[in-house]
Design a protein around this nucleic acid. Structure first.
Length: 271
DNA sequence: CCAGCCCCCTGTCGGC
DNA sequence: TGCCGACAGGGGGCTG
C-alpha cells in the first residue's frame, strides 16, 4: 500500500535516526526477502558501512552507504522503524530483518505478507534503473508528461501505475488523480484530449503533494516509522468509497477491476 | 507495446 | 461455531 507519499514519510521519519550511523550487522528471518545475497553475505557486506544519505526513488527507500546502496521496497505491508533491542511494538511479530547500528539501536524491517524486498547492491541504478521519472520533480513538466503519453495505447489507469512510466503512483493515487481529472480509468491513453492531459498532469501532482501534506494514507497496514498514522485516507474522494455518493455529482461510486486491480470511479462525472 | 495470468504471502471475511 | 475458499495487492515474470 505504501505509495510515493507514504514512502516519503518513511524516509523523512527515519532520516534523523539513521543518517550518520554505521551498520554493525544484520539478522535475517526470511531470507527470500533479501537480494541478491544470502543472509550471511548480506550481514557481512553491510557491516561497517556508514549511512551517508537517506532518500526516496519511486516507492524505494534508498540508503546510500559508504560502498553500496541498500534499497528497500515495502510493497503492501512493509514497515521500517528504529528501536532498542528489547522491542514490544505490535509490528515486531512480523519482523523479517534487523540491522544493528553503532548507537546500540536497530533498524527493523517488518512485513506481514513478506512481499517487501531489501536489495544490497553496489549501484542503486541496478534496482532503480528502469523507473520512470519522479512525478514531483521540477523536471517533470507538462511537456515531459505529454511526451511520455505519446504513442501509448491501452487504459490510462494501469499506465499510471506502471513504474517504468512514472515512478511512485499506486492504486490509491491513480484512482484519486483520475477522479479529480474527470477521466474514466479505462480511457485509452491515446484518447486523452490536450486539456485532459494537462488536467491529469496537475491532479497527479496535486494528490501526491496532498498525500505528503497529510502524512500519507493509513489504510490497513501503513504506519509512519514512529508508529503513528497518516490522515490522507480521510480525504479520499473515490478510493474505498464504493456505494457512496460522488463528492462532485452524487452519482454512486462504483468498484470494478482493471488489470487485476480494484478500481474506484464515478460512472457519471469521469468520462 | 499491451493484455492477461500466475506467483509470492497471510489476515480477514463471506458462505455454508 | 467452524471450516474453507476467495480476496486483497505491487511488481516480476511469462505467454500470446
Amino acid at each position: 500500500m505504501p505509495e510515493l507519499p507514504e514512502v516519503e514519510m518513511v524516509v523523512r521519519g527515519l532520516r534523523p535516526d539513521v543518517v550518520g550511523r554505521t551498520f554493525t550487522g544484520a539478522v535475517i528471518h526470511w531470507e527470500r526477502q533479501i537480494a541478491p545475497l544470502s543472509a550471511g553475505a548480506f550481514s557481512e557486506r553491510i557491516s561497517g558501512q556508514h549511512v551517508d544519505r537517506l532518500s526516496r526513488r519511486g516507492k524505494y527507500v534508498v540508503f546510500t552507504l559508504s560502498r553500496d546502496s541498500l534499497l528497500v521496497h515495502l510493497k503492501m505491508t512493509g514497515r521500517l522503524y528504529v528501536s532498542l533491542p528489547d522491542r514490544q511494538d505490535d509490528a515486531d511479530r512480523w519482523v523479517r530483518a534487523v540491522l544493528g547500528m553503532d548507537d546500540g539501536r536497530e533498524l527493523c524491517f517488518s512485513d506481514l505478507r513478506k512481499f517487501g524486498r531489501l536489495h544490497l547492491v553496489e549501484h542503486a541504478e541496478e534496482v532503480t534503473g528502469n523507473l520512470g521519472p519522479e512525478p514531483l520533480a521540477e523536471t517533470f513538466t507538462l511537456d515531459v508528461f505529454r511526451a511520455l503519453l505519446d504513442h501509448r495505447k491501452g487504459a490510462i489507469k494501469p499506465l499510471l501505475m506502471n513504474q517504468t512510466f512514472i515512478a511512485g503512483i499506486g492504486n490509491i493515487y491513480a484512482d484519486e488523480s483520475l477522479w479529480l481529472a474527470g477521466i474514466a480509468p479505462r480511457r485509452g491513453a491515446d484518447t486523452l484530449k490536450p486539456g485532459e492531459t494537462e488536467k491529469l498532469y496537475e491532479t497527479i501532482r496535486q494528490v501526491l503533494q496532498q498525500g505528503i501534506e497529510h502524512e500519507g494514507a493509513s489504510i490497513n497496514w501503513y504506519r509512519k516509522p514512529d508508529g503513528s498514522t497518516g490522515t490522507y485516507q480521510e480525504r479520499f474522494f473515490v478510493y474505498d468509497r464504493a456505494g457512496q455518493p460522488c463528492p462532485r455529482c452524487e452519482a454512486i461510486i462504483q468498484k470494478t477491476r482493471i488489470a487485476q486491480r480494484g478500481t474506484h470511479y464515478c460512472p457519471s462525472c469521469q468520462v
